[in-house]
């Protein structure tokens, strides 16, 4: 009976471990980075960096044979939380200073973060521009369905800054928790206009139209990047950061709509 019991418990524990191992990209990346044979670098990057960083990772793998770049894209605050909770990342690229400060505040950053790109807000409207939006002030017009980010997330904080600077008060129909959700509402035509980043409009292509506004310069988001102290591949992490801040990285970032830091 006792033996059976133990076998059962073992079986259960084994199944659980196997199940967990099967579905953990994070732990998988950790195992790979500990491997002495194949070299790999795990990069946690803000969701807005998806296109340029994916292209850059391919270039990096080509110029560094035998290297694997594992990319994990999510909201900067999610990534910062994951890193402070011990996620095995080698490099962190944040979409704002605040979330990088969370990580460096926990003494997890190697050296000091470097700013590598900037991003500004712009107005995205559905292709036909049904509400005839031409300026930032138009967003506050009664009857216009404007969607913005909530003040708790970086794009919402930037929107608040522009509002304060221009003395315009928006009455949005929704305050989304991510810029992707704002863009989604514009693409689906639910919203007449949304405040998103220049790079989001670039990614969306013909599905939205951009209405640039000069006041966007009042709120520039700076993107910092840093190697992480717990990294086991510090050389590779440094090399990847050099690629991001170097000419090839800058070119890809510019192509995606990012500004200079």
């Amino acid at each position: 009976m006792r033996a059976v019991l133990r076998a059962g418990a073992l079986l259960a524990a084994g199944t659980l471990t196997a199940a967990l191992a099967a579905c953990g990209p994070v732990s998988g990346g950790g195992a790979a980075s500990g491997d002495s044979g194949a070299k790999s670098v795990t990069v946690f990057a803000a969701a807005s960096l998806k296109a340029p960083f994916t292209a850059l990772a391919e270039q990096f793998e080509a110029t560094h044979p035998g290297t694997t770049v594992t990319l994990s894209f999510a909201g900067s605050s999610d990534l910062a939380t994951q890193i402070t909770q011990g996620a095995p990342a080698d490099v962190f690229a944040s979409a704002d200073i605040k979330n990088m400060a969370k990580v460096s505040g926990a003494a997890l950053v190697e050296g000091s973060p470097r700013d590598f790109a900037s991003n500004v807000l712009t107005i995205a409207v559905p292709p036909g521009n049904p509400a005839a939006i031409a300026s930032f002030a138009d967003l506050a017009r009664p009857g216009v369905k404007t969607v913005v980010c909530a003040a708790q997330v970086p794009c919402g904080a930037a929107a608040k800054t522009v509002e304060t600077e221009t003395g315009t008060t928006l009455t949005p129909v929704s305050e989304e928790s991510s810029v992707t959700d704002v863009l989604g509402k514009v693409i689906s035509g639910e919203a007449d206009a949304g405040l998103v980043y220049v790079t989001d409009v670039k990614t969306a292509g013909a599905k939205v139209r951009e209405v640039p506004f000069a006041e966007s310069a009042k709120a520039v988001n700076t993107y910092p990047i840093a190697a992480l102290r717990r990294s086991r591949n510090k050389d590779l992490a440094a090399a990847f950061i050099a690629a991001v801040t170097g000419p090839e990285g800058r070119q890809l970032l510019r192509g995606a709509g990012f500004g200079a830091p």
């Binding site: 605050s77 969607v147 909530a150 997330v153 929704s174 305050e175 989304e176 928790s177 959700d181 639910e190």
Partner: peptide, 27 residues
């Protein structure tokens, strides 16, 4: 709700959406 209704205090931001948002700044 997030996909279809949006998120505005008192109108569409239910408790799960509020939790999701608070998590950004105030764990």
């Amino acid at each position: 709700t997030l996909t279809f209704a949006g998120s505005l205090p008192g109108v569409t931001r239910t408790l799960p959406l509020e939790i999701y948002l608070q998590r950004e700044t105030d764990a």
